[in-house]
Amino acid sequence: MDVNYINPILSSFANVMPQLGIANVRKKGMSLKGRFIKSPGVMIIVGIIGDIRGNVIYGMSLNDAKKIASTMMMGMPVDNFDELAQSAISELTNMLTANVATNFSNDNIIINISTPTLIHGEFTANASSDKVVCVEMAVNDMVIEVNISMEKNTI
């Protein structure tokens, strides 16, 4: 995977999160993972196709997902990770990844994204390639893992 694919994602967090009321956004860490990614509680998978192909798999704890959903819903308490909270988190990843597509287009790299697929519970996701870069993003007091599995489309 090309490490240049990371900057559009970091920029996306800096652009989108403050619009949702989450002003404190920073990269917490970065690591390499294999194809199999253990869920921290909630995972959202977004497919990438175009000049680059692969996926971005966002992960967060169930408690962090509820806190983020609450923030997105103007502070409405989120006690249960119900359909409304799941929809908010899916929309967040849709906004983030759409912004990534815009960032790539500024470099003449054209991609399209799939509808986010949200899954929660204990499971292991299978990324689209054997090498995955995981960027941990700290958003306020919460952590979002961004597992990036993208490569240049050779077709």
Score class of each variant (00 low, 15 high):
Asn4Phe: 12
Ile6Ala: 03
Asn7Gln: 14
Pro8Val: 01
Pro8Ile: 02
Pro8Trp: 15
Pro8Tyr: 14
Pro8Ser: 01
Ile9Gln: 06
Ser12Phe: 00
Phe13Leu: 01
Ala14Tyr: 07
Val16Glu: 00
Val16Arg: 01
Pro18Gln: 08
Leu20Trp: 00
Ala23His: 13
Asn24Met: 12
Asn24His: 10
Arg26Asp: 08
Lys27Tyr: 00
Met30His: 13
Met30Phe: 15
Lys33Ile: 02
Gly34Leu: 10
Gly34Val: 05
Gly34Ser: 11
Phe36Gln: 10
Phe36Met: 12
Lys38Ser: 07
Lys38Gly: 05
Val42Trp: 11
Ile44Gly: 02
Ile44Cys: 05
Ile44Val: 07
Ile45Gln: 14
Ile45Leu: 12
Gly47Asn: 03
Gly47Tyr: 02
Gly47Ser: 01
Ile48Lys: 14
Gly50Gln: 01
Asp51Asn: 14
Asp51Met: 13
Ile52Ser: 13
Arg53Asn: 02
Arg53Asp: 00
Arg53Val: 07
Asn55Glu: 10
Val56Ile: 14
Ile57Glu: 04
Tyr58Ser: 00
Tyr58Phe: 06
Gly59Gln: 06
Gly59Ser: 09
Ser61His: 00
Ser61Asp: 14
Asn63Met: 15
Asp64Arg: 13
Lys66Asn: 05
Lys67Met: 07
Ile68Lys: 02
Ala69Asn: 08
Ala69Cys: 07
Ser70Tyr: 00
Met73Arg: 13
Met74Ser: 14
Met74Trp: 15
Gly75Gln: 14
Pro77Gln: 02
Val78Met: 13
Asn80Leu: 05
Phe81Thr: 04
Asp82Gln: 04
Asp82Pro: 08
Ala85Gly: 10
Ala85Gln: 11
Ala85Cys: 08
Ala85Asp: 11
Ala88Glu: 06
Ser90Leu: 04
Ser90Pro: 03
Ser90Cys: 06
Thr93Leu: 00
Asn94Trp: 11
Met95Gln: 12
Leu96Thr: 08
Val100His: 06
Val100Ala: 07
Val100Gln: 05
Ala101Val: 02
Asn103Val: 01
Phe104Pro: 02
Ile109Trp: 08
Ile111Phe: 14
Ser114Thr: 02
Pro116Ser: 03
Thr117Asn: 13
Thr117Asp: 13
Gly121Arg: 05
Glu122Ser: 06
Glu122Thr: 07
Glu122Met: 09
Phe123Trp: 08
Phe123Leu: 01
Thr124His: 05
Thr124Glu: 07
Ala125Lys: 06
Ser128Trp: 14
Val133Thr: 04
Cys134Met: 07
Val135Trp: 12
Glu136Ala: 11
Glu136Cys: 11
Met137His: 09
Ala138Arg: 12
Val139His: 09
Val139Ala: 13
Asn140Ala: 09
Val143Leu: 09
Ile144Tyr: 01
Ile144Leu: 03
Val146Trp: 03
Asn147Val: 03
Ile148Thr: 09
Ile148Asp: 01
Ser149Tyr: 02
Glu151Gly: 07
Lys152Pro: 15
Thr154Cys: 15
